[in-house]
Structures are given as C-alpha cells and as structure tokens.
Computed example of a mutant assay.
Amino acid sequence: MVDSTATEKDGAGFKIIYQILITMLVIAIIPLGGLWYIGIHKSRQQWTANIYRNLVENTEHLTRSVDDWTNMNLRLLEQNAALPAILGMDSNGQNPVLKAVTDTYEWIYLAFTILPDGQNLGRSDGKPVTFYGDREYFKQVLGGKPMGQQVLLGKTSNKPAFILAKPIKGEGAKNHGVIAIAMTLEDLSKTITKTRIGETGYAILLDDTNRLIAHGQGEVSSELQDFSSHPVLSQRNRFDHDSFVFEDNGKKIVAFSKRTGQGWTLIVQQDYKEAYAAADQAQRNALLLLLVTLATVIVIAYLLARRLSTPIRNLTLIADEISRGNLNAVIKEKGRSDEIGALARAIDRMGVSLQMAFERLRKR
C-alpha cells in the first residue's frame, strides 16, 4: 500500500512539473516561432526585391552605356563619311583618314570603305583590297537602312568581329558607298562591359540574332557564338513564371535582360549563391538567435515550473502525512502571499482542526 501511494505521488509530481513546463513552452514558442518565420519571410522578400532592383538598375545603366557607345561610333562614321577626303571616293585621300580613326580609337582595328559594287576601296591597315559585297552589313546599308551591323569572322583578323557601317552620301543624298569600322570582340568586351556585380556578376551583349558581341568575362572564342539557348532568352529552366532565377549549366543564377536602342540584347546575371549570400547569412544568424532564445526559454520555463511544482508537491506530501495521522507536520509554505500560501494555511488549519477534534475525542 505504501509503495502504491509513493508511486502515485511520484507520478503526480512528474505530471505537474512537465505539464507546467510544456504549457509555458507552447505559450512562448508559438508566438516566437511565428514572429521568426514572418520576419525571415519578409526579409527574404525584401532581399529578393533588392536583388531584382539591382539587376534592373545595372542592366539599364549598361544599356545606356551601350547605346551611348554605339551612338558615339555611329557619329564617328557619320562625321568621317561627310569629309571631303571620304566623299572623293579615292583611296589615296581616304586611307590617311581611315588610318587616323584606328590610331585614335584603340578598340577599332580596321576602318574601311566599300564601293556600291561591293569592292573594297580604302583601308586603314594598308593591306590589299578585298570583296565585301557578300557581307550583311553592306547589304543592309545599300538596302536603305540608316546603319548596318554584323557579327562575323573578320577576313582581316580571322577572329570574331563586330562591324558597324554607315552610307557615304554625296549631293542629292546619292549613295556613293559604305564606310565601316571593325572591332574585335575581346576589346569590345573590355570597353562596354566593365561593370561587375560582386565577384560573379557580369554582362553579356548579343546582336539582333543572339550572336555574342561582348562578354563581361572576356569569354570570346575564335568562333561565332550563338547564345539563343541562354535560359534568359529561351525562358527555359525558370523556377516560376514571375521569377528572375534560372538554371544555367546546372548552376542557379539570377538574371535580367533588356533590349538596347539598336535591337541588341543585354543580359546581366549573377550566381544565385552570391546574390543571396547576405540573405542566407542573415537567415542563419536569425536561426541561431532563435535556437539560443529557445534554449533560454526552456531553462527559464524549467526553473519556473520547478518553482511552481515543488511547493505543490510538498503540500501534497504534507496532506498525505496528515491523512496518515501525522498532525505535527511543518508547513513551510504558510508564509507565501500567493494562492499556494493560502492553500498551505488552509491545510494547516485543517491539521489544527483535526488535532482539536482528536483531543475532544480523547477527553470523552
């Protein structure tokens, strides 16, 4: 009987302390966890918006730079096309002017003129003339377009080159021929894509057929590169409809694209890990802070649970002693001013009443 009672008392004590502990933890953890989740979620959303805004701003800035760079070269062509030495359509007069162009602008490796029949007339490099009538930029200008452009393997450099061309027009807007400049893509990449975004962010410039004009990492091979399969252009490997996060060669990237004034495409991209590095670090720090806070809450809740359950267990033991006839048990909790103190004083009065009743019974 004694063992059964002791077991009952121990079980009751176990239930009280841990019920109090679990209740306090639930009350603390639910709002704390909710606030943490909401804070992390909103922080992630804000960081995503910042990354997107940064990509857009960099893309727009570079687009303006590309347009300014292109317009500068077109003005260069227009100004030289209007010079008497060029309008004279004589190679002896044109060659010094064309040579001055390549000497002044380091990214231009060849300046040249073409007759309406496609035959090369003047050259800045002094090499033998060649036939350019099969070139798309030449056909564009003779077809009436205000400018011609093409990415191709240069006949002079045997490397991928970017060509800009303008008509040579004399009196009456008669087309005397074409003036053009050729630029290697390596030099062009250095000139127009100097902007870096962190350690992994860079820009890619493509022509209207998605051929590479310039690459921020200088990755221009000896062959013409078609970037039509880039995930930003093909919209493949997109993580959701409204996302700017893509997968490129097994690696997640953030990217944004914009058309330039000439119909080219500028892509700005950055590794996903670097773009979200600060956000991920903030999330890890917040999680660490949450774990520390939870550990502190658990310790405090346990101490409070013990503080509340210990006097209750003591009073339970005293009540049990009184029920066994031990009316001299000392109740330490009588001095408390809370509900536990009131319970202790009630048990003490009960013990006194029982003593008085026993005394009356003995006197009879």
Rank of each mutant, 00 (worst) to 15 (best):
residue 8 E to G: 06
residue 10 D to E: 14
residue 11 G to Q: 06
residue 11 G to C: 05
residue 13 G to L: 05
residue 15 K to G: 13
residue 19 Q to W: 02
residue 26 V to M: 14
residue 31 P to S: 01
residue 43 S to R: 07
residue 53 R to F: 00
residue 54 N to P: 01
residue 57 E to N: 01
residue 59 T to I: 01
residue 59 T to Q: 00
residue 61 H to Q: 11
residue 73 N to S: 12
residue 81 A to H: 11
residue 83 L to F: 00
residue 83 L to H: 03
residue 84 P to C: 11
residue 85 A to C: 11
residue 85 A to K: 04
residue 91 S to L: 09
residue 92 N to T: 15
residue 93 G to K: 10
residue 94 Q to N: 12
residue 102 T to N: 07
residue 105 Y to C: 04
residue 106 E to R: 08
residue 106 E to Q: 10
residue 126 G to Q: 06
residue 126 G to A: 02
residue 127 K to W: 01
residue 135 R to G: 01
residue 143 G to I: 04
residue 167 P to S: 13
residue 172 G to M: 07
residue 186 E to Q: 11
residue 186 E to A: 09
residue 192 I to P: 00
residue 197 I to N: 02
residue 199 E to S: 07
residue 201 G to V: 00
residue 208 D to S: 03
residue 216 G to T: 01
residue 226 D to E: 02
residue 236 R to A: 14
residue 249 N to F: 13
residue 253 I to L: 04
residue 256 F to W: 15
residue 257 S to L: 09
residue 269 Q to M: 10
residue 270 Q to C: 03
residue 274 E to F: 00
residue 279 A to G: 11
residue 281 Q to W: 10
residue 283 Q to G: 14
residue 285 N to S: 14
residue 293 T to H: 04
residue 295 A to K: 03
residue 299 V to Q: 02
residue 308 L to H: 05
residue 310 T to W: 03
residue 326 N to I: 06
residue 345 R to S: 07
residue 348 D to E: 15
residue 352 V to C: 09
residue 358 F to V: 14
residue 360 R to D: 13
residue 363 K to Y: 10
